Amino acid sequence: MTVSETVSAEDLSRRLASLDLAGRLSLAAAIPGRTVFTTSLGIEDQVITAAIGEGGVDIDVVTLETGRLFPETLALIDETEARYGLSIRRYHPDAADVEAYAARYGLNGFYESVEARHACCDVRKLRPLKRALEGASVWITGLRRGQSGNRAAIPFAEYDAARGLLKVNPLADWDIEAIRAHVAENAVPVNPLHGRGYPSIGCEPCTRAVRPGEPERAGRWWWENDVKRECGLHVPEAAASELPRA
């Protein structure tokens, strides 16, 4: 019996909507099976990690250590573990996959085409994510409706048919002002790059600071024209199946 047969995403969304963050995380963790939170160490994810650590919630915290992260992000992993007394498990890309990508496209070939960029994200993020979510029933993310137009209708919970699990977005209805206020009130450690114009932080070669008036995610893969650009982690099954593979 799959998790979709025991827990309705629509019913779970309704229940999550009435709870605070701590309650949402506890409810997600109570669903039978392994619950995994994937953190990119961004400001939203830090709010969730802090709540998991302070509440002692039984949720595995993992991160995709792509090999191209900012030094500030790597330092924040260590700081966060020490602050909340938890372990953030790092999932790395397979060295053979990285070598095959570089042989085909060049190490920084992602600048040359959308195909090459998606292939890089596949090697450095999607394949490690698959390993991180093995055996999981629930996947917790830091997605918010205000991050981009492509995420404006994100529910609190949805069934991820491609991965066969429930995806829970406990901050779906939080705006950036609420996030910042929570961080300030609770002294949550955040990436110093946020204060330098980086509201959304990914791999160093693929992230720039945003300009005044630009959307939060405008600095991600900025050389591409598609306003809906994503790495493939958070796209519907049909769309994800169309992403090129290395």
Rank of each mutant, 00 (worst) to 15 (best):
M1R: 14
M1Q: 06
M1Y: 10
T2N: 08
E5L: 09
R14I: 01
A17S: 15
A17V: 02
R24W: 01
R24L: 00
L27D: 05
A28D: 01
A28R: 00
P32G: 08
V36C: 07
L41E: 04
G42T: 03
E44K: 00
A50N: 02
I52L: 10
G53D: 07
G55F: 02
G56Q: 08
L64E: 01
L64H: 05
R68Y: 09
R68C: 05
L69M: 14
L76A: 03
E79T: 13
T80E: 06
A82H: 11
R83H: 13
Y84D: 12
L86C: 08
R89G: 11
R90I: 04
H92W: 12
V98D: 13
Y101V: 04
A102T: 12
R104P: 12
Y105H: 12
G106F: 04
L107V: 10
N108V: 02
F110A: 05
Y111C: 02
E112F: 08
E112R: 15
V114T: 14
E115R: 02
C120Q: 12
K125P: 00
K125S: 01
K125V: 00
L129Y: 05
K130T: 11
E134N: 05
G135S: 13
G142Q: 07
L143G: 00
R145N: 04
R145L: 08
Q147V: 03
N150A: 15
R151F: 08
A152L: 11
E158A: 15
E158N: 05
D160V: 13
G164T: 06
L166Q: 00
K167Q: 07
K167R: 15
V168M: 15
L171E: 02
L171G: 01
W174V: 01
I176S: 07
E177W: 14
I179N: 00
A181P: 03
V183W: 13
V183T: 10
N186R: 14
N186T: 05
V188T: 09
V190G: 14
G195M: 08
G195A: 09
Y198A: 05
Y198V: 08
P199L: 07
I201F: 14
T207H: 09
A209I: 11
P212D: 07
P212L: 06
P212C: 06
P212T: 15
P215D: 14
R220A: 05
W223I: 11
E224S: 09
N225W: 14
V227E: 09
V227S: 07
K228L: 09
K228Q: 09
H234Y: 12
P236L: 08
E237D: 13
A240Q: 09
S241C: 03
